[in-house]
Structures are given as structure tokens and as C-alpha cells.
Simulated assay, not measured.
Amino acid sequence: MRTISVITAVHEGGHHFIRDTYESLREQKLPDDWQWEWCVQEDGTSGIPASSLPSDPRITFGTGLQARIAVTRNHALARATGDLIRTLDADDVLLPGALERDIETLERVSWCVSACVDLHEDGTTAPGPYDPPGGPLEPTRFYHEVQEHRLSVQATTFAAHRRLVLALGGWQALSGAETIALLLAAEAVTAGEFIAEPSVLYRKHPNQTTASNHYWEPTEAATRIDALMQRASALRESGWKWQ
């Protein structure tokens, strides 16, 4: 059996939807020779988010010093055994066929992102308004979009070959935008694809990290983007390509 490792970071107080996340993962239908594992890592040492997880041998749970989501995801990545990696936030819901489409796409390319549907507190949904067309992506598309202060995808849908993620150093150790950082790093060294069929319900709620005004403090936010753009630029200038 081949494995796709689903990577989820969670913190105490941010775990209230994680059972829904698990149920959506449990209902995924994979090709006959594939299985999933769920590497859940707490940003902290309370152990409380683990109480919301079922007893399932496909789940591993770890704790660690509080260091924000990028470091937390990297700790989960260290436990991953799969050929492929898929990012999944602790408050999001996978849609049917999401992992199967990732697996099929990653037979052709080294990374992919997919469409998502916003899930609002009142239960209504709305598709992403700026999705690119499905299929192969231009090699600088997302780099230029971030330069122009826009991004047409949710980078939290990122999936890739595990060895590529390891070679890139995992999620860049930033206070946010770490999924964008990994997306741009992967784009800099190898081709990817966009899956037009939505893969997640992206839950909108007041307690999500990006809903905080503090998260968007101008100097902090600008520094994050500057750091991830510098890394992507350095990779491009190096000429190194992932085979």
C-alpha cells in the first residue's frame, strides 16, 4: 500500500471543528493501492485537542513548544511516512474525491493546489472567485500574483511529493503565510497543476487565525511576504530544479 500523509496543525481552542475534519477524511475514497494517514500536531503541550480525536490507528498526534503553525506542521511532517503530503487545516472539511484527485494529479507533477468553497457561519457556501483554469500552471503565475498583492488560490489546499517538501525545508518558519511560502518555493523549482474541482470547504469563523486584526498588522504582514518572496527569488536565481 502507498500512503498519502495529511498534515494538520492545531492549537488548544482551535480544535472545536476537528471532529468534522476527521469525518470528512474518513469518508475519502482512495485508489485500491492507497491509504491515508493523518499527522496531527498541537502547537502547544496541553494535549486537549487530542480529546476530540477518535481512536483510529491511522492518526498520530504530537505536541510541542508553542511556535506557530509553520513549525507545528514541520513537526508533523517529521512523522509522515507517505510518498505524498496533503495540507489540511483543523477547521476545514475535505470534499468527496479530494485525495483521490490529488493522487491522480501527483502521478504527473510534483505538486498541486485545488479550488475550495468558502463555508460561512450561517451554513451558506460560496466558490472561490478568482480560481485559475484547471490544468498545468504557468511557472511564475503565483509568484507574480503575490507580487501584485493577490493570490487566486487557497494555498492550504497544497499537496506534493513528500521528498519535494523535505528538500524545500517544509513550511517556512514565519508567523503566517507559510502555506504561500511553500507554494512559491515549489513553483520555483518544478511544474505544478491546479485542480478545478473544489477539494475543501474552507470554514470562515471569527476565531480563525487570519480573522484576527493583529494577524494583519501592516509591518508584520509585509515582513512575512518579503521573507517568502526572498526565498522564492533565491530558488529561482539558483537555477536548481526538482526532478
Score class of each variant (00 low, 15 high):
34 W>Q: 09
167 A>L: 01
175 S>E: 15
105 T>A: 15
125 T>E: 05
39 C>P: 03
236 R>T: 07
124 T>W: 00
34 W>F: 11
211 A>V: 04
17 F>T: 11
202 Y>N: 12
201 L>M: 13
3 T>A: 06
233 S>C: 09
7 I>A: 05
142 F>Y: 12
18 I>V: 13
122 D>E: 05
149 H>Y: 08
213 N>M: 12
83 D>I: 09
42 E>D: 12
58 R>H: 13
207 N>F: 12
188 A>G: 10
212 S>D: 11
201 L>G: 06
20 D>A: 14
217 E>T: 13
26 R>F: 06
91 D>L: 03
138 E>H: 14
88 L>A: 01
166 L>E: 15
50 A>Y: 05
50 A>H: 11
76 A>I: 04
117 V>A: 04
209 T>G: 05
63 T>C: 14
145 E>L: 04
95 L>P: 01
110 S>Y: 11
216 W>N: 07
106 L>Q: 10
221 A>R: 13
127 P>T: 01
2 R>A: 10
42 E>A: 06
159 A>C: 11
97 G>D: 09
16 H>F: 11
199 S>G: 15
119 L>W: 01
202 Y>A: 00
230 Q>T: 12
121 E>A: 09
46 S>I: 10
65 L>A: 10
204 K>L: 14
170 G>F: 06
93 V>S: 02
100 E>S: 14
216 W>M: 08
30 L>A: 03
113 V>R: 03
183 L>T: 06
210 T>H: 14
237 E>S: 12
17 F>M: 11
135 G>W: 13
181 A>L: 10
194 F>A: 00
1 M>L: 14
218 P>A: 11
82 G>I: 05
86 R>D: 09
51 S>A: 15
239 G>C: 10
120 H>S: 02
166 L>W: 09
198 P>L: 04
125 T>N: 00
14 G>W: 10
71 V>Q: 12
230 Q>H: 10
51 S>T: 15
24 S>I: 03
55 S>G: 10
127 P>I: 01
238 S>F: 15
141 R>E: 07
196 A>F: 01
35 Q>L: 14
118 D>K: 07
79 R>L: 12
224 R>I: 00
9 A>V: 08
95 L>H: 07
48 I>D: 08
3 T>W: 09
9 A>Q: 05
93 V>C: 02
237 E>W: 02
184 L>W: 03
82 G>V: 03
218 P>K: 07
40 V>G: 01
230 Q>W: 12
185 A>W: 00
167 A>E: 04
14 G>C: 06
173 A>S: 13
170 G>Y: 05
222 A>L: 12
103 I>D: 00
4 I>A: 12
168 L>Y: 01
103 I>T: 04
34 W>V: 04
101 R>V: 00
180 I>R: 14
30 L>Q: 05
165 V>L: 07
92 D>S: 02
4 I>Y: 01
117 V>S: 05
180 I>S: 13
126 A>I: 00
48 I>N: 11
182 L>W: 02
141 R>P: 03
2 R>P: 04
241 K>V: 11
193 E>K: 15
41 Q>P: 12
213 N>E: 15
218 P>C: 05
2 R>G: 08
87 T>H: 03
159 A>Q: 03
50 A>S: 13
